Lab assay of single mutants.
Amino acid sequence: TGIVNVSSSLNVRSSASTSSKVIGSLSGNTKVTIVGEEGAFYKIEYKGSHGYVAAEYI
């Protein structure tokens, strides 16, 4: 489990890349469940599926 540490919002992406499609966003202080790690990204549970967020902001 981690907490989103941004002042505005954090993009949730379809894969572990900044060039991948943005599938949603999370606001600051949102609690997320981390299920894996790929490079600089965490794989998280997101809306019944999975998404990827930049690990530096969690």
Rank of each mutant, 00 (worst) to 15 (best):
N5L: 10
A40D: 14
G2Q: 05
L10A: 12
S27Q: 14
I44A: 00
Y57N: 08
V4Q: 04
A54L: 15
S19Q: 11
S49F: 10
V12C: 03
Y46V: 02
E38P: 01
G28K: 14
S7D: 11
N5Y: 07
S17Q: 07
S9Y: 11
K47F: 11
S15P: 01
T18C: 15
G51Y: 04
V22D: 03
Y57F: 13
F41D: 04
V4K: 04
A40C: 14
S14Q: 14
I3F: 13
S15V: 06
G2Y: 08
I34P: 01
S17A: 08
S14I: 14
Y46I: 03
V6L: 09
Y57G: 09
Y52F: 10
V12Y: 00
A40L: 12
N11S: 13
N11P: 15
G2M: 08
S25R: 14
Y46Q: 00
A55N: 06
A54C: 15
S15M: 10
L26K: 00
K21C: 10
L10C: 15
K31P: 09
V53P: 00
S27E: 13
E56F: 08
G39A: 05
T18V: 13
E56W: 07
S49K: 11
V6I: 13
Y46T: 01
K21P: 14
V32G: 01
S17G: 07
T1M: 12
L26S: 01
T18W: 13
A40M: 12
S25A: 11
A55R: 15
S27L: 13
S7F: 08
N11V: 15
N11Y: 10
E56V: 10
K47Q: 13
H50E: 07
K43T: 04
V12G: 01
A16N: 04
I34R: 00
L10T: 09
G51N: 01
E45T: 07
S9K: 12
R13F: 15
V22M: 05
S14P: 03
Y57V: 04
A55S: 13
G24E: 01
S27F: 10
K43S: 03
I23C: 05
N29M: 11
K43W: 05
H50F: 15
S25L: 13
F41T: 02
S9H: 13
N29W: 14
V4L: 05
G51A: 09
V12P: 01
Y52S: 00
T33D: 06
A55D: 02
L26T: 01
N29S: 09
S27K: 14
G2E: 04
S20I: 02
I44M: 01
S25M: 14
G24I: 04
S20E: 03
K21I: 10
T30Q: 11
E38K: 06
S9A: 11
L26I: 13
T1P: 08
G28T: 12
N29V: 06
G28A: 14
E37Y: 14
G2W: 08
G36D: 08
K21G: 08
S17P: 01
I23V: 07
N29E: 07
F41E: 02
H50C: 09
A40Q: 11
E37H: 14
G48P: 03
N11I: 15
S19K: 12
S17M: 07
G24C: 08
E56R: 12
G28M: 12
Y57K: 08
I3A: 05
E45A: 08
I3H: 09
Y52E: 00
K43H: 05
S14F: 11
S25K: 14
V4P: 04
E37K: 15
G24N: 01
N5D: 06
I34H: 00
S19G: 10
Y46L: 03
G39N: 09
T1Y: 14
I23A: 02
N5P: 04
I3M: 09
K43Q: 07
N29K: 11
K21D: 12
G51T: 00
T33S: 08
K21L: 10
S49E: 09
G28V: 10
S27R: 14
F41R: 01
I44R: 00
V4R: 04
A55Y: 06
L26F: 04
G39F: 05
G36C: 09
K43M: 10
N11E: 15
K47E: 13
E45F: 08
S8D: 12
T1Q: 11
T30L: 06
Y52I: 00
G39Y: 05
F41H: 04
G39Q: 04
K31A: 10
V35C: 09
I44L: 02
S49M: 13
G36A: 09
V4G: 04
V22K: 06
Y46M: 03
G36W: 06
V35H: 05
T18N: 14
A54H: 10
S15H: 14
Y42W: 05
G48N: 08
S27V: 12
I58W: 03
I23R: 02
K21F: 08
G48R: 04
V32A: 01
S20M: 03
V22E: 03
H50M: 09
T30C: 12
G51E: 01
E56L: 10
S8G: 15
G39M: 04
S14V: 12
G28F: 14
V22F: 05
S9D: 09
G24W: 04
A40N: 12
E37I: 15
K21A: 13
A55F: 08
S27G: 10
G36L: 05
V53I: 08
S17F: 05
S20Y: 07
S15K: 11
Y57T: 05
V12I: 07
I58F: 05
A55C: 11
I34N: 00
S17I: 06
N11A: 15
V12W: 01
Y52K: 00
A40K: 11
V32H: 01
E38W: 07
A54E: 15
S20W: 04
K47I: 06
S49P: 01
V4W: 03
S7C: 15
V53N: 00
L10H: 03
S19E: 12
Y42H: 04
Y46R: 00
E45Q: 08
I44H: 01
S20V: 04
G36R: 05
Y42N: 03
K21V: 11
V32D: 00
T1H: 13
F41S: 03
K31V: 15
Y46S: 00
T30S: 12
S25F: 13
E38R: 06
G51H: 01
S7L: 11
Y46H: 04
A55G: 05
R13D: 02
I58C: 03
A16Q: 03
I44N: 01
S14Y: 10
S9C: 15
T18I: 13
L10G: 03
S7H: 12
G24Y: 04
I3C: 13
G51M: 02
Y42L: 12
S49T: 13
V53L: 03
G48M: 05
K47N: 14
S19P: 05
E38G: 02
G28P: 15
S7W: 07
S49V: 11
G39E: 06
V35A: 05
K47V: 06
V12R: 01
N5A: 09
E37F: 14
A40H: 10
L10E: 03
V12H: 00
K31I: 15
S7V: 12
G36P: 00
G28S: 12
G48T: 06
V35D: 02
G2R: 08
S15L: 09
V35E: 04
S9I: 11
T1A: 10
Y42A: 04
S7E: 10
L10P: 07
T33P: 03
N11H: 14
S8K: 12
R13N: 09
I3Q: 06
I3P: 04
V22N: 04
G24T: 02
I44P: 03
I3S: 06
S7A: 12
V32Q: 00
V35M: 09
S25P: 03
Y42K: 05
K31W: 13
S17V: 05
K21T: 12
V32P: 01
Y57S: 09
G24Q: 02
S19M: 10
G2A: 08
Y46F: 13
E56A: 11
K31N: 08
H50P: 05
K43R: 08
R13W: 15
G28C: 14
S8Q: 12
Y42M: 07
S14M: 13
S20C: 06
I44C: 05
G39C: 07
N29Q: 11
L26P: 00
L10W: 02
K43N: 03
A54D: 11
S19D: 13
I58E: 01
K47L: 13
S7T: 12
V6D: 05
